[in-house]
Design a protein around this nucleic acid. Structure first.
Lengths: 237, 237
DNA sequence: CCCCACGTGTGACATTCGTCACAGACACGA
DNA sequence: TCGTGTCTGTGACGAATGTCACACGTGGGG
């Protein structure tokens, strides 16, 4: 049982990279809760009292609009933490949550969370590192979608993929690890616009492309394509 | 001297909300460094060894593009931390930094930073809270600018301002705490488009507006205006 | 072996938005 | 009182892009 809880924790990211003793310490603080369908976990505006881990079942995140409709913003499936952010900054929940299926959850109270990282410094390390990574990722996302032209956003994505593959140079070759539909969603544009941007880069001999495999022909041109629109602080202002 | 360092720390945000003993502990770890103009603090790709606090002078953040040009991304002026993010996630610097004026800086090593929050749990609290707030802010930014239509972004901004003012209801009235130029920049659009979006809301009796004072006439309509484009996780996926 | 789903490429068209241009309102100081 | 600068409001126009539509290639399952 305890073992399976550790397995669950490992799939969360929040406590990523922790060794077994630390995970055991976390597991010891978790309170299992079974909820029938339709149980409200918390409501928008409440102060955060802790975080839920969805182990089985389904949770809907929703808001009640001013004319009384309940708009479901997203549906969470296992294994996920529900509402991590308020845990960190101690602010109110920005939306409400309820089970839409009979569900098993684990609850970690705010107090226990704080005790955990106070008593186990490596947990503080892991949490801070995790938050740092997410912040960095979001900065990157903002950087991408604030570029005015779609071609710039696509160029930025290509540069990222090339860098990840260690092929960030003229002649470097890598795979695009996405469908164009996915890429379109990430770049806040459409599949077609992504395809057209790629076509344009091909036409201007900036890249060579066969299916998902891309070869960089003119790295400078690719970098230049990203330099329209607002320049953002790479460290986050 | 120690007192003035505390003053500087208070202006940083990173250690926001800490009491004097904690700030003294931080101050005790800081290493003052004077650098002449043109000194390189760190270079893109290096692993982070600590964070710099710019006390006086000027620091340029730049990247060297593939054709050898050095593109200055932004210029930091006192009092600012330089490259906080790598401190948290321990990854490499995403850009290089050098002084462009003779400058006084304070250096806090990664090791000392970790020791600080291990020995002073309230520092861990403050750092985690600070990161959480920034994450929440960035999520909001992404949410705003990923809305396709400008009118939706303006509506979202209005809802935020109304909520901050505690006037989030039909008939609620509040001031827009920005010029339209500033608002345009925040929403990744232009002054003119902001003005036109406001004009359109007025025309459709969604809001009443006299200068910067806005009264909400139809909250539902305002909320509906924000529901185009991608719906994002308010807790950040 | 065929069919169908999926990913991709591209053409045509309407719409949105940014750019440029100009005007009125207001505050501030000479 | 008269500039002068800032903020706001709008009109016109062209470029970028989303939408719709269609075509091709590929891979897996019946």
């Amino acid at each position: 049982m305890d073992l399976s809880i550790q397995k669950i924790l490992r799939r969360l990211g929040l406590f990523q990279g922790l060794d077994e003793p630390a995970l055991r310490a976390v597991a010891a603080r978790l309170i299992p809760r079974h909820m029938s369908a339709g149980t409200i976990l918390f409501q928008r505006g409440q102060l955060c009292r802790g975080v839920y881990i969805l182990v089985s079942g389904e949770v809907e995140i929703y808001r009640t609009t001013s004319d009384g409709r309940e708009q479901v913003i997203l549906t969470e499936v296992p294994v996920k933490t529900i509402a991590e952010l308020p845990l960190f900054d101690g602010a109110a929940y920005p939306a409400s949550a309820r089970t839409s299926q009979p569900s098993n959850l684990l609850f970690l109270s705010l107090d226990d969370f704080q005790r955990l990282y106070r008593e186990h410094p490596e947990i503080a390390d892991a949490v801070i590192q995790n938050l740092g990574r997410r912040l960095r990722h979001l900065v990157r996302v903002v950087e991408r979608i604030s570029l005015r032209e779609v071609s710039g956003r696509v160029a930025l994505a290509l540069l990222d993929f090339a860098e990840q593959a260690g092929e960030l140079r003229d002649g470097g070759s890598f795979q695009i690890p996405r469908t164009q539909t996915q890429l379109g969603a990430e770049l806040a544009t459409t599949r077609e616009s992504v395809a057209r941007a790629l076509a344009s880069f091909r036409e201007h001999h900036v890249i060579d492309q066969a299916g998902r495999r891309v070869t960089i022909l003119d790295l400078s041109a690719l970098e230049d394509a990203t330099s329209n629109g607002g320049n953002l602080n790479p460290f986050h202002r």
